[in-house]
Design a protein around this nucleic acid. Structure first.
Lengths: 222, 222
DNA sequence: GTCTATATCCGGATAGAC
DNA sequence: GTCTATCCGGATATAGAC
């Protein structure tokens, strides 16, 4: 903890982060094959050979990036504990995912492209991490249904619906902005969208316990 | 119309279709840059040079494919007339989109990747075709809201929600199948999903007029 | 640890025979 | 119209100087 050392692993860590951030941009814009190491190097402001020094190969860089993304993701979603209250848990789920779409759109996009292409590199992760996560949440939801706290809907597809709708605003950002005639999302836009999704989905699930916030959140936006 | 001619434009048309079908597969699996003309040629069972003969360049092939896709799409969605009845129009919209996801998943995937990467080649199409389409539908929905036929929700985001949820089953097919433990969709799966979406979204919009079909359509699926 | 220069390969495109 | 052989730019990866 003293300032004595000239270089700890800090420089190395800093360079890795710079490269990963640059790679994220490039992979989003051009896909895996379309991205050149030279472009990543230029954006990260390091010589091309250094990327090979740090990551060995382009594939390794891409996989490191995916792990980086999914690690951050799991952190956020882990503390989505199965609360007692259905409306509260679903609300937190939607809010959290919507915030992730806003703060980490590129992570969502890279993940989406990977899945669209058949998830050749993360099949394992889906089976080992996502599948158990979904099973856990759906069993909690099913118990709510059995107790009559929620309408009898398919919990798995409810999760798909929340994923689909929230990620849409990251992945299809270009289309959404074009159609709503904006240059980029503002925090109010995210609030409005979150309110809309909460309104439809909670109502759709038969969970109406916070109606006061919904009526104004869902009025059309100019 | 006699059989006299040795070759009409038929062979040419047939070859173009074969190449486009092969290109669709390859572009989905590997993205634009990741797809090689050789791989398309092999899949289409024609010599590589013939593709250049028919389409001149890889970019042209890709653009031709996008136009092919969007042409078919517009055809289907064009006859989504703004009915008098909100529930009926939204029902038909969801059913139609869900069927498209089932019958043309690759088209949806290529379109999704194009949008995710910033829609560099179809910006024009969005502004000229999709934007007017959305404006037309939202103005109809707004009139329903003004007449009190529908809860006051944002029509634009309702369209986004329907796009997001239906396309999710095409684009994220790999993930959905992994989590639901299936090898591919069966027609019953599509019916079940359609029923689920209709249930949540119609209820969320406050349109409850066909409740009889919904209760059984939304029971959880094993 | 860092970077320049280079080896090696691959893919898009075309020339030209049939 | 069809296909073989080839050109050439460009990308990954590495060797080796500093």
């Amino acid at each position: 903890m003293t300032t004595r050392k000239y270089k700890t692993g800090k420089i190395r860590e800093r360079n890795r982060e710079k490269i990963l951030a640059a790679a994220e941009q490039e992979f989003v814009l051009h896909g895996f094959k379309g991205t050149t190491m030279q472009a990543v190097a230029d954006r990260a402001e390091v010589p091309k050979a250094n990327i090979h020094y740090y990551f060995k190969s382009k594939s390794n860089l891409y996989i490191a990036l995916l792990e980086h993304i999914m690690g951050a993701w799991n952190e956020v979603l882990a503390d989505l504990s199965a609360d007692d209250d259905p409306a509260e848990m679903i609300t937190r789920f939607i809010r959290t995912k919507m915030q992730l779409s806003y703060t980490h759109p590129n992570a969502s996009k890279i993940f989406a492209m990977e899945i669209i292409q058949g998830a050749p590199r993360i099949r394992g992760h889906m089976a080992e991490v996502m599948l158990p996560w979904v099973k856990e949440k759906t069993s909690v939801m099913q118990s709510w249904i059995d107790q009559g706290k929620m309408r009898p809907i398919d919990p798995t597809h409810l999760i798909f619906m929340i994923w689909a709708t929230t990620q849409h605003y990251a992945d299809f950002e270009t289309q959404v902005l074009e159609i709503t005639n904006k240059r980029q999302y503002a925090p109010e836009d995210i609030d409005h969208i979150t309110g809309f999704l909460l309104d439809i989905i909670l109502t759709g699930c038969g969970l109406e316990n916070n109606r006061r916030t919904r009526s104004e959140a869902s009025t059309p936006q100019v």
